[in-house]
Design a protein around this nucleic acid. Structure first.
Lengths: 126, 126
DNA sequence: AGACATTTGATGCACACGCATGTACCGTCC
DNA sequence: GGACGGTACATGCGTGTGCATCAAATGTCT
């Protein structure tokens, strides 16, 4: 019976903490770099997997975003010039997503802001 | 320098965990009770503060939702009959929000689903 | 009392999202 | 080879959100 109350407390703490950080991140990334959190996260995943071109799926698997949302996010990033889409030769259904140099640069800059916000909002957590 | 990597790991874990639970909650509450997570959370806060009518502000202060989002959420809840808005006599700018009986009942039902999902998704957390 | 700043909640607007569906392609089985 | 189910990504649609703004009411200062 106590377990239920504990569960609710944990959930509220989790939600409060997440929302505080997410909200701060969203604002900071937008103001300083014109990026949505989803857009930054997408760039971030691409940097992580930057060894080669990635299929949409691979990117999607690494983050919590629906397939349609990712599709649009990548489209936005491409329009901004941070990413490039290319057809996949082997499987012509697939789409390769690749960081451009501008994308790599922009991510590097935004990463500073990202880290700063995380440090500000995520430190007091024993 | 290690601190940065740790920060990022913590953030990703937090985000992944939150999104998993939030997504499951959203779906379950919608399917079983026709409630948005925000709507459920709002009812939940009202139950917590059920001693008396609450001003919008008091509700807003207890949850992570912008003022405009709360305004619309309460409007939706009112249209569904779970909540009632009343003018505040002392300060005629303010609005009192009060749970209806139907709202109390609906929240009690939804609470079961809520707890079930939390138990399923939030337990493996040492 | 009168003018002005502040607060409270509602609303116009643009936008990112999820769901369902559409289109193109792949793989399999007859 | 042709038909058919499954997969990959794009897109139409409805919805909830935050930001900026608005109207009404309050508070303040002279």
């Amino acid at each position: 019976m106590k377990a239920e109350a504990d569960l609710i407390v944990r959930w509220r703490e989790l939600a409060t903490c997440y929302n505080a950080v997410a909200c701060a991140l969203e604002r900071a990334l937008q103001d300083a770099h014109g990026l949505t959190m989803s857009e930054y996260e997408t760039l971030d995943r691409l940097v992580d997997l930057n060894s080669k071109k990635c299929r949409m799926q691979e990117v999607a698997a690494a983050m919590y975003l629906s397939q349609s949302a990712l599709s649009r996010t990548v489209a936005r990033l491409e329009k901004q010039g941070y990413v490039q889409r290319a057809l996949c030769q082997n499987d012509r259904r697939g789409i390769f997503v690749e960081l451009t140099d501008a994308g790599r640069r922009h991510h590097a800059e935004a990463r500073e802001t990202h880290l700063k916000i995380l440090a500000e909002h995520l430190t007091p957590n024993p």
